[in-house]
Amino acid sequence: MDTLQGRVWKYGANINTDVIIPGRYCHITEPTELAKYCMADLDSTFVEKISRGDIIVAGGNFGCGSSREVAPLSIKASGIGAVVAPSFARIFYRNSINIGFPIFESAPAFEEIDEGDEVEITPSTGIIKDLTKGTEYQAAAFPEFLQAIIARGGLRGYAEEVLARRKATAFTP
């Protein structure tokens, strides 16, 4: 995955999936349609003000609440390049990895990076650089298994490999 660079939009802790994509929009599955309502109940100006590649820096337990995969999907579709937070709620964490959306865990990055800063992230190393301030942070490393999923662009690639392997080893009389 290439280097990510963008302007920071900053939010607090416990940003839940109900404000990321409210229940009333959850029956939508089309990404471009979902993108229109991203963060609707947190920040109604969000969709207009962000540019492609911008980065969300938020407090801990980001994405808590429901299992709705439309939460990371809507953020991804809105054009946001990555989310940085001290911790992620677990279903949001796995959904992001499964759909190939980059997330990074770092508490100091959240504390020190300000809204409007220009930030650069190298996904392969987890290095987060605040270009405005000249500071640098190391995100927590992903376990090997998850790195492999990320490298395949999400969980689907992994499943395809499993199916191909099973087919190859299937008993044929």
Binding site: S67, R94, N95, I99, R156
Partner: peptide, 9 residues
């Protein structure tokens, strides 16, 4: 609880 991609896989 898991996400939709997990269910599909």
């Amino acid at each position: 609880g898991v996400g939709s991609t997990d269910v599909a896989v």
